[in-house]
Amino acid sequence: MSDPTFTIATSVDDALAALANGARPIAGGSDLFVGARQGKAPLPESIIAIDRLAELATIEATSAGTRIGAMVNHATLMTDPTVVADFTAIADAAALVGSPATRNVGTIGGNVMNGSPAMDTGAPLVVLGATAHLQSQNGSRNVTLDELWIGPSRTSAAPDELCIGLDIPARPERSGSAYVRLEYRRAMEIAVVGAAAHVALDDSGNLAEVSVALTAVAPTILAVDGLDSLVGQSVDDSTLASVAERASEVATPISDLRASDAYRRHTVGVMARRAVDAAARRAQGEQIAVPVNRALGIGASA
């Protein structure tokens, strides 16, 4: 392992100056440290710690919706009243991440900028229409996650850009969201596959909006297209079967130690169907506790 220099940022400006100078940011550090030890990528030569920037650890209403600060950790995401009420899929996902220790050090900004296609918080952010707010010394911009994630652990962010937070638009009336994943064990697990759904219902209870995104079945988190024909339909078995079929169709999974490509392709459809079902039930006002995996007995039983 290399021997980097280490500085603790005391302000965002401080962090941006360090990034402009070639430093790389560290939040909780788990991905960085485990990755370095496994030989995936050496520690950067210069590290700037951003985990003490309290201004990046807030969840705030904005003119366009809500900004979740990049340094908000999973423990907060799974319990924060705004996240649980309005962006429930994110809370579902955060509650499944690792263990209490992992959820304490892991941050949403770290997840997003690490860009793993297996990150649990990614698919929820996609279906909720989140954009990443990136800032550098030269200015700031919002990018869609589709533009940001360009491959496994690769983003389109410039090296001097810092993720300040995730901007999520205000939720429509009668809407709900959910995230479910296939797992072999309950804790310290990485999704075999997963799916998030956002649903908004019209006055008669039919689908007004539906979006689905998939975890661990493509080089990046994958938004499922081709669901527009479901708008106006009721959330019944035939609709859910169409969701499952389309999700399996667009998935391009790999085979690895954890699952074969065929198994992933099939099960991601099942997860998509369950996510839409849970999101629709939440949109109808049903209280399904976070995380959906535990509330509905999806995934590992013990």
Binding site: G29, S30, F33, V34, R37, A49, D51, G98, A101, N104
Partner: peptide, 27 residues
């Protein structure tokens, strides 16, 4: 495990649990 999996290295940092195997000392 020295890989953030087993929890044998658990300590508290500011009262919160941390896997000390996967946390830089300087943090």
């Amino acid at each position: 495990c020295d890989d953030c999996e087993c929890g044998a290295c658990m300590v508290l940092v500011d009262g919160q649990p941390v896997n000390s195997c996967s946390y830089l000392a300087v943090q």
